[in-house]
Design a protein around this nucleic acid. Structure first.
Length: 839
RNA sequence: GGGAGUAUGGCGGAACUGGUAGACGCGCCGGAUUCAAAAUCCGGUCACUUCGGUGGUGUGGGUUCAAUUCCCUCUACUCCUACCA
């Protein structure tokens, strides 16, 4: 009888049994502690890739482990199903985006099921389903009512050839990806959410997320970009262009106000627009700067308006400058060339005064000559009237105090975080539920009329025709009965992913997005797992959304994700032929360190890079599952590389994982035949290994758990070979092995569970307990002389120093060294080390 | 320019709050089994060595009885961000 483990039989068998027994279906149980494991849901692009395999394997280890530890584990799955690729595929394949998407979903669902993930499939959702998106239309209406959603003009990328709006990723080097035409900026009225209302809270609450990687928190914190500074109101003199008497600027360096020698505004500033209307040269300037790279060349237009310095009897010029951004601060700055590199470059170009006002504490060079490099550090104030001699940090406060006293300025905290533009000019997205009445007013759709469905398409239409759109958008106002047209824009797809983790609680509920009592039980997500590429946008939007929904009284939580883990990428070798084309690694033949393609031509070895279709270095998970099985794929994903780092896919690595899967099976078969002799000492190695496997899973050190399991299996084999273990202890060790491998290789584990004669599912078994105190009693104590290892002596943790030292002195290696030396100091740390210092 | 991080054998990587550096795996070498091969099993594997030892965790220094671990210097690489006033 062949004892070989056959994954092709075992894996589908257990997947079916799990499904038939519904063992991963969960319900709220108030008396049981919950654990919510969530991986970022996939976009249904067609097939799963290795990145998914890695992501969902990591999550599944946690989910299965926590279940065995007694938690009520919530582990759902869904589809981020709206988005651009569906429209593109629809065009090239002449299909309806909905059909394309649902076909992909059913294929990918089968792929995921073949990996054996412990998912509650009854909670599956797809964001393109009206039953899902009707609720986010409701959220939008509530946000609109509360003022969180508003409309304003904003730029989009316009392809003049295809006559369509392009997403940022469709613009390559300033050209449309399809047409190749130069992309133009076009102003459209678009919807925004007031994320900026939450800047402070989003920043402050990062401190409470102590189970998030610091890296992600730093990224979000930089993105929110809090700065402290001042707003200063300048008076305008000689203004021939408008009635404006004042101009407000934002600065983080109010201390340098005495060094101000010009003021600059953006070409999009309200004042600049007024000037442009009356000054042809200014208009020309605005045209010119469109083609100037302001990063390299700073240019300005002297408006001939002058600004009165707030503390000096002095007037300084006002420029329109290409390096001033309209969408940060107030679009207006004062220039202090001595202490800002950009201002200095600008001043040198236009012959403006450079006045140093901060003297660095330890002036390294004669800093009184500023040439090309501005002084950026702190120091004592000079040339600054009432500030002279004061430390510049203190001077900042002094200036603000004075500004406030004179009513010409104030302290101001500013954020880089901008409002979230949610309008997308696309078909395959969630319709924005708004009507524009013929009298010009904006009318939200009535809640009872939700969902606003997408216009339906014929079988083979990738997007609606103009007639179809016109027919769809014509409607009447529900209040007045007047003619109205629908908003044709759809939501940014980040809108869907900002609340899907809530919807899993009640995925089929029709009249509400979810029940608050279920949210209060399951949320927040205890462990969220995904790629670091979502560190800012998706995670920040979800945090914002949660807070907004809290304020709209939908939920009671402040943060959606308690724990976050960001996994590394899956990488693979790349190859290029002589023509510079990428070649699939599986078509490469190696010979004596050289590599050849199928035409026997030598190829160049490229870098190890993230698996991607364009570099042809992808490995299809399904073929790996066919050849080696899901457990092998899972084991490989968890071995060697720590999960947060990149994992290099190698064929030998997969083969060796497969070998070990078989070795576990063979080992367990051997344990059944084991006949033990009498009178055996017990070993506690197994307890200590179970302890480390558990701790390493808790800490996401799965590669170490894998190493522990190797040791565990080797230990079983050694004990059987040496006949040094009793039958009962071996039986126990084999059962525990079966359990501790379960989160990693669940199919193999169930097969062994059955082999060993246990009832039910291993998936439902309890995680083994280990007795901490059993772990160490006798150890080999390292003995050092002057910090260098000289030998080992058997010792107990509670041995006295005299005992240990006496044993050490009797070591032959030490006798020789200590012969004619005087022992100075002795350091003894029980259970750790004995170090003898000699002279 | 700003920010975050990494550096340990031929390779992936271990080493708890400073206490036996290189666990575990891959690869390689040797052996067993086999007509032979594959598979499997056993042993070895940081370097040098006069076999007593000596050196060794990117570089140079420091603290300590003891440093991969703590502090300072420099170097290389990776990621994020970028006119943010």
């Amino acid at each position: 009888m062949s004892s070989r483990y056959n994954h092709k039989v075992a894996e589908p068998k257990w997947q079916k049994r799990w499904q038939d027994a519904n063992i991963f279906k969960v319900e709220k149980k108030d008396n049981k502690k919950k654990y919510y494991v969530l991986e970022m849901f996939p976009y249904p692009s067609g097939k799963i890739h290795m990145g998914h395999v890695r992501n969902y394997t990591l999550g599944d280890v946690v989910a299965r482990y926590k279940k065995m530890k007694g938690f009520n584990v919530f582990h759902p799955m869904g589809w981020d199903a709206f988005g651009l690729p569906a429209e593109n595929a629809a065009k090239t394949e002449k299909k309806n985006p909905a059909d394309w998407t649902y076909t992909n979903i059913s294929y990918m669902r089968n792929q995921l099921k073949s990996m054996g993930f412990s998912i509650d499939w009854d909670r599956e959702l797809a964001t393109c389903h009206p039953g899902y998106y009707k609720h986010e239309q409701l959220f939008f209406l509530e946000m609109y009512k509360s003022g969180l959603a508003y409309k304003k003009m904003s730029e989009v990328n316009w392809d003049p050839v295809d006559k369509t709006v392009l997403a940022n990723e469709q613009v390559i080097d300033g050209r449309g990806w399809r047409s190749g035409a130069l992309v133009e900026k076009k102003n459209l009225s678009q919807w925004f959410l007031k994320t900026s209302n939450y800047s402070e809270e989003l920043l402050n609450d990062l401190d409470s997320l102590d189970m998030w990687p610091n890296k992600v928190k730093v990224m979000q914190s930089n993105w929110i970009g809090r700065s402290e500074g001042a707003e200063i109101v300048f008076s305008l003199v000689k203004n021939n262009f408008s009635d404006d008497k004042h101009l407000k600027v934002y600065t983080t360096r109010p201390d340098t106000i005495f060094g101000a020698t010009f003021v600059a505004i953006s070409a999009d500033h309200a004042l600049a627009k007024k000037i442009l209307k009356k000054d042809i040269n200014a208009q020309k300037f605005k045209e010119e700067i469109k083609i100037i790279d302001s990063e390299k060349t700073k240019v300005g237009y002297n408006t001939n308006i002058f600004i009165k310095h707030p503390f000096l009897d002095k007037q300084i010029p006002l420029f329109i400058a290409n390096f001033v951004l309209m969408d940060y601060g107030l679009g207006a700055v004062f220039g202090c060339p001595a202490h800002d590199q950009r201002d200095l470059e600008f001043a040198l170009k236009y012959n403006l005064e450079v006045i140093q006002v901060v003297e660095p504490a330890k002036s390294k060079q004669n800093s009184n000559k500023i040439k090309n490099v501005a002084i950026l550090g702190g120091g004592l104030m000079i040339n600054s009237g009432f500030l002279d001699g004061v430390d510049n940090e203190k001077a900042k406060k002094e200036v603000i105090k004075r500004l406030e006293k004179e009513g010409i300025g104030n302290k101001k905290i500013n954020y880089k975080l901008r409002d979230w533009g949610i309008s997308r000019q696309r078909y395959w997205g969630c319709p924005i539920p708004i009507l524009y009445r013929e009298d010009g007013s904006v009318v939200p759709v009535k809640e009872k009329d939700l969902p606003v469905l997408l216009p339906t398409l014929g079988q083979k239409n990738p997007s609606p025709t103009k007639e179809e759109v016109d027919e769809w958008k014509m409607t009447t106002c529900p209040i007045t009965g007047m003619k109205a047209v629908r908003e044709t824009d759809t939501f940014d797809t980040f809108f869907e992913s900002s609340w899907y983790f809530l919807r899993y609680c009640n995925p089929r509920l029709n009249n509400k997005p979810f029940l608050k009592e279920d949210i209060n039980y399951w949320l927040p997500v205890d462990q969220y797992i995904g790629g670091v590429e979502h560190a800012i946008l998706h995670l920040l939007y979800s945090r914002f959304f949660t807070k907004a929904l809290r304020d709209l009284n939908f939920v009671d939580i402040n943060e959606p994700f308690t724990g976050l883990f960001t996994q590394g990428m899956v990488t693979h070798k790349t190859f290029k032929d002589s023509a510079g084309n990428w070649v699939e690694p599986n078509k490469i033949i190696e010979s004596k360190g050289n590599y050849f393609d199928s035409n026997n031509e030598q190829v160049e070895v490229g870098k190890i890079e993230k698996m991607s279709k364009s570099k042809k270095n992808v490995v299809n998970p399904s073929s790996i599952i066919d050849d080696y099985g899901a457990d092998t794929a899972r084991w490989f994903m968890l071995s060697d590389s720590p999960p947060e780092r990149d994992l290099e896919w190698t064929d030998v690595g997969v083969a060796s994982s497969h070998k070990f899967i078989n070795k576990i099976w063979e080992t367990c078969i051997k344990t059944k035949k084991y006949k033990a002799p009498h009178g055996l000492s017990k070993t506690n190695k197994f307890d200590s290994l179970i302890k480390s496997v558990s701790e390493n899973i808790e800490k996401f050190h799965f590669n170490k758990s894998v190493a522990n399991i190797y040791e565990y299996v080797n230990e079983i084999n050694k004990s059987m070979e040496k006949k040094s273990i009793s039958g009962d202890n071996l039986k126990r060790a084999a059962k525990d092995l079966c359990i501790i491998i379960h989160p990693l290789t669940p199919h193999l584990s169930e097969e062994i569970w059955e082999l060993l004669g246990y009832e039910g599912f291993c998936a439902n078994a309890n995680w083994p307990e280990f007795k901490k105190n059993d772990v160490v009693d006798m150890i080999d104590l390292p003995v050092q002389v002057n910090g260098k290892l000289k030998g080992l002596i058997p010792s107990k943790n509670n041995d006295k120093e005299e005992v240990v030292l006496e044993k050490a002195k009797n070591l032959p290696s030490l006798k020789k060294i200590l012969k004619d030396k005087i022992i100075g100091k002795v350091i003894y740390i029980p259970g750790k080390i004995l170090n003898i210092v000699i002279k």
